[in-house]
Structures are given as C-alpha cells and as structure tokens.
C-alpha cells in the first residue's frame, strides 16, 4: 500500500511560488526543515503510525488533518520526541532536523529547537512574566539585562503584549482562554525555536480567539517553520500552505493545501474533505 502520494519542497528564495516536485528530485531547493521517512510508531504492541514519509518545508505552515484517532497528534509528538514521556511509546524510522538525525540528538536540545503548543492551554500557575521567561531560564538564556526585553519580544510575537503589558506579574490564570493559549505560544517562542508544533491549539477556543491565533500563525512563519494539527478542515484550508491527510495511522495524501482541498488524488481524502466520513 502506498502511504503518501508525494513530497513537496519549497524554494526559500521566493515564498510566493509553490513548486511541486517529485521526491528526491529537489535539487537546487533548500532541503526540508524536517524530513520523516519510514516512521512507524507503537504504543506497547499497538501500532499507531504506519510507514509515514513526509517532508516539512521550511518557513511554511504545514497542516495535518484527519479524523480523531488517526495518528496526527502522535505524529506531531514524534517530531520533538515528546512521545518519550509516555510509557511504552516507541518510534522506528528516520527523523531528520536540518539533515541531522533527530533520534541521535539530545532530546532536551531537540525540544528547545522544536517548540510545542498543546491542545489544552497549559500555563504554569506562575505570573505571566515567569511563564514566558521559563524556557529562557531553564536553558540558561536569561541574562539579567535582557530578560525583560526577551519576554516582551515573545509576547509581541504572540500578539499578546498590548493586552498584558500592565499585568505582567499577575497570575497567568487571570487571562481568558484565548489569551492563555497565546501566552503558551509566547512561552514556546521565547527560546526561539526553529520549528513550532501546534496540536489543535484552537479546539477549546471561540471563533474570535481562533481568528487571532490564525492571524498570528501567518506572521510566525516568516521566522520559523510551523506544523499545525487540526481537526478543523476550514482552519487547515485557511492557514496551511501544505496539508497532509492522516487516516488510521497512515499518511494518505500530502500536497499543497490547494490540491488537497480542490483536487485530491485519493478517494479517502475526497471523502473526508467533502464530509462523507469523520
């Protein structure tokens, strides 16, 4: 069974052009930010991902869609080796970050380079400032003079600065749900990750808060690579440059968002997009 129908690479030099090329024939283009090949994942004896190949293009938003339980979140958690915190989780296959074997790197440094935002916003019960500064502190990046600047920069990037600049030392729990999720994004951005993984970040938010986060993602891709898991197809269609469709642990189709939503190559994708299942 073929698991993915194509791989895409993007030319960094001209973000406006989207060129679709055959796998491994991307000479001239900058290599993908993340390259996943032959990835299998197991929870104990149960296999959750089957032979996934996928290249995440740099400075783009990659959307991952599929019905719940299809393995998209599990896939996301392999990209920063977060799966290692789960008992009995085991990944096989090759994962590359900028051409380096991600499995051979130190897991802690991988997670510093590949940030993550979770489905449920999970601020620490600390002040807003301390939440954002946390990553800097644990990575030894908190320098006395510049810490405040760094926090401000991250909050600005997460489009939260104007709303919280006067209550930096208030508890993070004082914020609304949407603000809390943006605070989590700011916290992830503070350590300047090269890749930002988002696991259904808007699933608990109202439409206005969702719109704010989507807007934010557009700005973010200028500086980093974004991978967005979502159960909301419209969201993928709105923000993703390329989209992958997962079903039952397999990557069924991966292409530019336009192709996936307008002319999908696979029957399953079409069924899902048109709402015939899932």
């Amino acid at each position: 069974m073929v698991t993915s129908t194509g791989m895409i690479s993007m030319e960094i030099t001209d973000p406006a052009t989207r060129t679709r090329e055959a796998p491994k024939a991307s000479a001239g283009a900058v290599g993908p930010k993340l390259r996943v090949s032959g990835l299998n994942f197991y929870y104990g004896k149960k296999q959750a991902l089957f032979d996934v190949d996928l290249d995440v293009p740099a400075n783009r938003i990659t959307g991952l869609i599929g019905p719940s339980g299809c393995g998209k979140s599990t896939f996301l958690r392999t990209l920063n080796r977060m799966y290692e915190t789960v008992q009995h989780g085991r990944a096989e296959g090759r994962l590359e970050l900028d051409g380096e074997n991600l499995m051979e790197l130190d897991a802690i440094s991988v997670r510093r380079r590949v940030g993550m935002v979770f489905q449920k916003s999970n601020p620490f019960p600390k002040s807003i400032f301390d939440n954002v500064a946390f990553g800097l502190r644990v990575n030894g990046l908190a320098r006395r003079g510049t810490l405040h600047e760094a926090v401000e920069r991250s909050l600005r990037r997460a489009a939260l600065w104007d709303e919280v600049k006067d209550l930096l030392h208030a508890s993070a729990y004082k914020l609304s749900g949407g603000q809390q999720q943006r605070l989590c994004i700011a916290r992830a951005l503070a350590v300047d990750p090269e890749v930002l993984l988002l696991d259904e970040p808007c699933s608990a938010l109202d439409p206005i808060a969702t719109a704010k986060i989507e807007e934010l993602l557009f700005d973010l891709k200028k500086q980093c690579t974004v991978v967005l898991v979502t159960h909301n197809m419209q969201q993928a269609a709105r923000v993703a440059d390329v989209t992958g469709f997962f079903l039952l642990g397999r990557l069924i189709e991966f292409n530019t968002t336009e192709v996936i939503f307008k002319t999908p190559a696979r029957r399953e994708t079409e069924d899902y997009i048109t709402g015939r299942f899932g």
Binding site: M82, T85, I108, R111, P123, G135, A188, A190
Partner: peptide
C-alpha cells in the same frame, strides 16, 4: 504541566 515544561527544553 510537565509536557509544557519539557517542550521548551527543560
């Protein structure tokens, strides 16, 4: 809470 911390490289 643990995941949030591990995810920023702690």
């Amino acid at each position: 809470q643990r995941e949030a911390s591990l995810a920023v490289g702690a």
